Simulated assay, not measured.
Amino acid sequence: MTDDIRTLIQELCEASPEQSDAAEQALCALGTRAVHELLPLLSDPTGPGRLRALSCLGAIGSEAVPVLQRIRREGPGQLRRPALEALGDLAGGQALEERDLRAVDRLVRIKLIDERSEDLPIGRWIAVNTGQVDDIVSALGLHHTRPATVEMGICAAVEFENSVEFHRIDQPMEHAYRVFITPQFDGWRLIYGDDFINDHWAWAVEKLSSRGKQAHFYLVDDFDGANVWWVAQNGSDRRGYRTYGDPQWVGEPMDFERSLMVDEDDPLYDAAEHADYAEGVTDPESVASWISIPPNTVSIAERSDHGWLAVTHQEVPHERFKGALRI
């Protein structure tokens, strides 16, 4: 049987798409018997069989967890690392033993010592002009706050599972979210968490701005052409734009917008430019460059502190979320 599995592994990586599909189906059908042979494919991040192997392990599902846990404890040594990744993807931190959780925590703290700033993704984010993480945690009612590298935080809050359903006794189903608070960049911290922000951005910027601060929400959605930017101050909406909003504009133009509005009496008047800025600025990245900091420029910004990962419910720890986070 082992030789048959190795033949299927070879076909999974090297055969035609049709043969690879057939090999993947056969390996999935073998269940836990295929786990040991699939794991080496995870060790090569650019290998042709990595995604296929992840798919197979996902299909095998929870039945693979005891096998992977045994590999973590007993080896073979070369499979321990990919077994850890597979456990994170299949079951999250709740499938890891205490010593593995401690090892991950130590690695994070080591990485934070000399972490270099990398630009952050453009998509949806909140910006708040406070360097105090406690203020953000308190305003949003966050829990289980822990240090995190930027790569780890973006994985957790954007790329992998960042919301889970749970319910308390005699209570309706609720959602718990993962939220990543970035290091401070030029006096601003950015907040990521795709599902949380998608569901609660208006509430979040109101709460974050309620203590004399300013909080912004930005959305750049290239898929359907939606742009949104919103500024709240002292707990109230100050200015906002939504491509598909009704109304599109809220509040009076901010100073930076007025500086871009072209006066028809100006000798340098340009009709096209006037049309662009007649009502205000619509591009969220441009707005961020004027009044906070765009995510794709933080690598050249002045940085302090490090990132923090948190969840929105005390009852739901980080270990409930699936995904093998890069550190």
Rank of each mutant, 00 (worst) to 15 (best):
W229H: 15
P183M: 09
G49P: 14
D270P: 00
T46I: 11
V137G: 07
I126F: 00
E63N: 09
V128P: 05
H216V: 05
S299K: 13
L208T: 01
L54P: 03
E315M: 10
H216M: 08
F166A: 02
D270T: 07
G31K: 10
S163R: 08
E74I: 03
P48R: 14
E118V: 06
E24C: 06
V298H: 00
Y241W: 06
R124A: 11
L54C: 09
E174R: 12
I191W: 09
Q78P: 11
C28V: 09
E161S: 12
Y269C: 06
E161F: 07
D135F: 01
R242Y: 01
Q314H: 07
R109I: 07
H36W: 01
E252G: 05
V316Q: 05
W230K: 01
E206Q: 11
P147L: 09
R52C: 03
S210G: 09
G77N: 11
K111I: 09
L84W: 04
L120Q: 08
R73S: 10
L107A: 15
K111A: 15
Y192V: 02
C56T: 01
A139P: 02
F217D: 03
L54Q: 08
V133Y: 05
D186T: 08
H175K: 15
E115I: 09
W249V: 03
E315L: 10
G92F: 03
W125G: 00
L260K: 15
K207I: 06
A310Q: 04
Q171I: 10
